[in-house]
């Protein structure tokens, strides 16, 4: 029995590391979409975060600096997106796609000399006593910094969006930009803030991949996680609490795939690798069907450009 408990603990720990990048990127996109902006460039900003985090951590030896670099890289890539969609009112879908294509290309170019190099791993927290509690210790008190940060951020985002004036303005801009503008709020300004926040968190999510999940750089290492994060935002009905649940559910599905593979059951590895993508499609279908025609919780101005009429 003791052995089983250890195995379960190991599985749960990997589920946490697989879920955290999805949660971080999803939270960023949730805020962006709450402001009425659809940024399909999550995958590109994540992969830039991954390469920047890895490169800075490797050259400075500090994974913490790597994390900061990852967030900055994600936000930096969000800047051209903001200029195009907010200031030049370009199509958000097309610009987001451009961002993903650019991010994948640029990260590949930058990361070329880091391929195959051993990375720096983000240390796990160790609180003497607490972290040593069997089973629960490592799970609750022995994660790395970003795991706690991601969960704390989910709580903060939830509070800010629903319990503060800033959140009210954010939702007003996303639900009815013309009224928000008429009330004197700077629609473009709020959206810029949301886009940069989204970029920084996507970058963090990517940095988590190259600093904690698998501390190395592999081209396209995000492998569609940015898109899964986008799906998770829809899945969560734009609610941070449900996003946490969704991210962990997806983390669990991914790890379950690896686990089944480890058991040596004669299932092709490709079938298990495709599991997260198939589950994403199924989840999208289920959630869209359930919500049906009443799309009340979608930000009403999602994807629409705003031109102030002075």
């Amino acid at each position: 029995m003791n052995f089983d408990l250890h195995a379960l603990e190991a599985v749960l720990l990997t589920i946490v590391t697989a879920s955290t990048p999805l949660l971080l990127a999803g939270l960023g996109e949730l805020v962006t979409e709450r402001a009425g902006v659809l940024n399909l460039g999550v995958e590109g900003m994540m992969v830039m975060g991954a390469v920047a985090g890895f490169a800075v951590a490797l050259t400075t030896g500090s994974p913490e600096l790597g994390i900061i670099a990852a967030a900055l890289a994600g936000a930096a890539l969000a800047v051209p997106f903001g200029v195009l969609t907010l200031n030049l009112v370009a199509n958000q879908v097309a610009t987001g796609l451009a961002l993903t294509l650019l991010g994948l290309g640029l990260s590949g170019l930058i990361g070329e000399r880091f391929v195959g190099q051993p990375g720096v791993r983000l240390p796990h927290l160790h609180i003497p006593g607490l972290s040593d509690i069997p089973f629960f210790g490592p799970l609750i008190f022995g994660q790395d910094l970003l795991v706690y940060l991601s969960l704390a951020l989910a709580a903060v985002v939830s509070h800010v969006v629903f319990r503060t004036r800033l959140g009210l303005v954010l939702r007003a801009v996303g639900d009815n930009h013309a009224s928000a503008h008429a009330l004197g709020y700077s629609v473009i300004g709020v959206r810029w803030g949301a886009v940069l926040f989204g970029g920084a968190l996507s970058g963090l999510g990517g940095g988590y991949l190259s600093l904690a999940y698998t501390p190395q750089w592999v081209e396209n290492m995000t492998a569609g996680r940015g898109w899964i994060a986008l799906a998770l935002v829809v899945f969560s009905s734009w609610l941070p609490g449900r996003l946490v649940a969704g991210a962990y559910l997806f983390g669990a599905v991914t790890i379950l795939g690896f686990f089944v593979q480890g058991l040596g059951i004669g299932v092709p590895s490709q079938l298990l690798s495709s599991l997260p993508y198939v589950v994403t499609i199924v989840a999208l279908v289920v959630i869209s069907r359930r919500r049906g025609a009443a799309r009340a919780d979608t930000p009403a101005c999602l994807g629409q450009s705003f031109v102030p009429d002075r």
């Binding site: 195009l84 009112v89 199509n91 294509l101 290309g105 081209e219």
Partner: peptide, 25 residues
């Protein structure tokens, strides 16, 4: 690196979308 081509392609799409603003505005 062969990745450079993909960077150019991404940059090109950005400029295309930016310049398209001029058609309507």
């Amino acid at each position: 690196s062969d990745k450079a081509a993909r960077v150019f392609q991404g940059v090109l799409l950005f400029w295309v979308l930016a310049c398209d603003t001029l058609i309507l505005y």
